[in-house]
Write a protein that binds this DNA or RNA. Structure first.
Lengths: 123, 123
DNA sequence: TTAACTGCAAACCCTTTGCACGGTG
DNA sequence: CACCGTGCAAAGGGTTTGCAGTTAA
């Protein structure tokens, strides 16, 4: 895979500068802010290629479009700010998931989403 | 709102018998299993009317269609079985969400999804 | 009767795909 | 030349909506 096309560099730059997971639309808009342009199909195709190569990871969210972030962060969760709408990374995990499931269940994985106001948006 | 149409009775019956949150498609299929039929638009329209009246609640899931469940359960979470694909209710919550967020963040709410095998599907 | 509900088909949004063109080695 | 990557337009899947006909009170 060639990362060194104008479009893929722009996509990765936008993700790096934002420093938080972005949706395809946010990436598309972000590239636009640089005065560059990328076709939305290219955004989608690049994102799935980058996920396949494990350079990025898809963050699936309940009821809204996925965000994409750089992989290699280890176990973490996400915070969704209801004012600025950004999705931010939460590094801690204080969920004792095994104690939550009824007997007989096997826990393989979990996702946790926290909603509220981020530090930039809280009064 | 009139709950006493053939279609809405069927939708609510299917939800009640299933005893776990269902997607619009699962409801549609469930009604079909009774030898009855409901148009998919009617399923969607009935579900949103029932959510608006707070008879049902929408369970938004990451990366897949919402499920619908009876409201009034209080705070709870969901388990998604990777074998039978059912979404099941988890009544406990052992997540200390407030301790997870960085200083300055305000926590309003959270969603937790556990993935694995339910008791009927585990070996 | 009349207000609400339903079926059908079309529209919608987000995402994926087919195809022909473009850039690079 | 051979290959991927790209843009465009069309197609998909899930969900919503407009409209005309139907049903419940």
């Amino acid at each position: 895979m060639n990362l060194n096309t104008r479009q893929r560099r722009a996509i990765l730059d936008v993700l790096e500068i934002a420093d938080h997971p972005l949706s395809p639309q946010e990436i598309y808009d972000g590239v636009g802010h640089y005065g560059e342009s990328v076709n939305m199909s290219t955004v989608y195709r690049s994102l799935s290629a980058l996920v396949k190569r494990e350079i990025l990871e898809e963050v699936k969210l309940p009821g809204e479009p996925s965000r994409y972030e750089f992989s290699g962060k280890g176990h973490h969760h996400h915070f969704r700010c209801r004012k600025c709408n950004r999705v931010l990374v939460i590094e801690k995990c204080a969920a004792d998931v095994n104690s939550m499931v009824p007997p007989g269940y096997i826990v393989e994985d979990h996702d946790l989403f926290i909603y509220g106001l981020c530090s930039e948006c809280s009064p």
